[in-house]
Amino acid sequence: MRTHWFTPWLYVIPALATLVFFLIYPSFNTLVISFFGPQSEKLVGFANYIYCFTNEIMLSAFRNNLLWVALFVPLTVFLGLILAVILDRVRYESLVKSIIFMPMAISFVGAGVIWKFVYSYRPTGSAQIGILNAFLTFLGRQPIPWLIERPWINNICLIIVGIWIWTGFCLVVLSASYKGIPRELLEAARVDGANEYRIFWKITLPLMKPTVAVVATTMFINVLKVFDIVYVMTNGAFSTEVIANRMYKEMFIFRNYGRASAIASLLLLFIIPMIIINVQRFREQEAFR
């Protein structure tokens, strides 16, 4: 049967049309709106972008997101990797894995509430209901206002919640990849004279590299979009603001569509390179099989 040049397009067009209508068009519209004022009533040029890069709270949001990237991405991936390798030698592996994966099953808002209790603070002298401060006072120490102490402690406390939630995901994906490595390769390396540490760096890690890259970029994208944890636990108070939460506020609290769209466009801009890398890595991984 003869196929016309347009035959493949007939198959692609429904999906493509949906994509254009629900994804490309809104993105493009957001970009356009970002050059307009609060109610899209008049063109303001780059004013919204200038605001993003000069406003103090926006700058602190950028800084905090950088801190999230610097701590959250390496720690989730590293913990996931180490746990994947170590748990492989543990008898109750699947049980332990399920427990570590559990936070993923809780809504992030729920996780925020749980950890708000963990970090809860009452002034010195009153009963501490947060487990951390209860422990500190039990030891006879001063309680610490975990979510207020700026700029490091409160941000790091939030990042820990993120790590708590996402490590399980990294673990499960990386563990599957680890189990895909033929046991004989590790045995061959052992006979060749490698200790476990060397095997990890010279054999295991290089073979898992494509998966590690996919997981790392996924975590990177997660971190740029981080919102719920911050929204629930501090709502950006005490210098814990992040980009996505700021966007939400500009949009739904201050009703400044222009600024919200500018922030959204910037987020998209930061994420695009990561998505490209991710897709490339994914292809590489497929080729490796």
């Binding site: 390769l185 045995e187 052992r190 006979v191 060749d192 004279g193 490698a194 054999i203 073979l207």
Partner: peptide
């Protein structure tokens, strides 16, 4: 441990490092 036994092994499916 294997690394200190002064042996070399050839595996059935070779186990070459890919």
């Amino acid at each position: 441990p294997p690394k200190d036994r002064d042996i070399a092994m050839v595996f059935q499916n070779y186990a070459l490092y890919p």
